[in-house]
Amino acid sequence: MAQARRELAERLREGGSESAALEARVLMEAVAGERDPDPFGRLDPDATARLEAFAARRLSGEPVFRIIGEREFWGLPFALSKATLEPRPDSETLVEAALDCIGDRRQEPFSVLDLGTGTGCLLISVLSECRAATGLGVDLSPDACETAQHNAVVNSVSERVSFVQGSWTTALDRRFDLILSNPPYIPTAEIATLDVSVRDHDPMLALDGGADGLAPYRIFARTLPDVLAPQGIVVLEIGAGQEQDVIALMTQGGFAWRGSRRDLGGHPRALIFGYALK
């Protein structure tokens, strides 16, 4: 298997992969059905055919974790589907920010709302750390809700969470202590310029944030006061260069900016808001 992995890594490297060795290992483990497969073992014909199919998909631009159908986030496994955004490590910044805000209340009961939940990675990660918390995930895609429910079962939080198909806060009639969202924030005109791994494989519903990328935040500024508890916290993911615009929109909606958190690249990624003091 070691030889097959080296050959695959070389093909991926020639195809332009910047992490060919890692991708080859991930694909090999998926084919072998185990982590760290025997380097001296041999792939049977069926496994060899699967590996070749995986290689062809990767060389066409499909992301490696899309190919294997799963990606780790916050140390937990999350199944992917065509209806869900692939979780990225930078989005873990939102989980960190939320847990920092919760502080010593981690073991107390509180409620979490995740808008545009996708795989459920943000909500499920917070619930995995806060064992008395309960959550609701909302997504416009019913297929995404189904994927998130599966992930809740896999990560042992299904008894404390539910997922519903819907448009943002429409039809919600309760308030939540913590609201999370990684909304679509790419300006429409920029989508065609994205890397093929994103443009052709992440769902458009999770990418297109309208003409300026700020459409969801305008909705949040207007509607979140109806679903946020009096002492509640909102944590939102943003794209590059959007920090001041989103702060301005949320401030106009009656919120106070409580700080920003930077991602692995040092860029503002998570914005924290609460109600403005009166």
Rank of each mutant, 00 (worst) to 15 (best):
R5K: 06
R13V: 02
S17G: 06
L22G: 00
A24M: 05
R25V: 01
M28W: 01
E29F: 01
E34L: 10
E34Q: 10
P39E: 01
T48G: 09
R50P: 01
E52A: 14
P63V: 05
V64I: 14
R66S: 13
I67R: 04
E70L: 09
G75V: 08
L76Q: 13
R88E: 09
A97W: 02
F110N: 13
F110A: 12
C121W: 07
L123A: 11
C130Q: 11
G135V: 10
L136K: 07
S141P: 03
P142V: 12
D143H: 13
D143S: 13
H150N: 08
N151I: 12
N151R: 12
V154K: 15
V154Q: 15
V154A: 14
F163I: 02
V164W: 08
L172G: 01
D173R: 07
L178F: 09
P184A: 09
E190C: 13
D195E: 12
V198G: 03
D208P: 02
A211D: 15
D212K: 03
P216F: 02
G241T: 11
Q242M: 12
A248Y: 00
L249D: 07
T251G: 14
G254Y: 13
G254F: 14
A256L: 08
R262Y: 12
R269P: 04
R269C: 09
A270L: 04
I272R: 13
F273L: 11
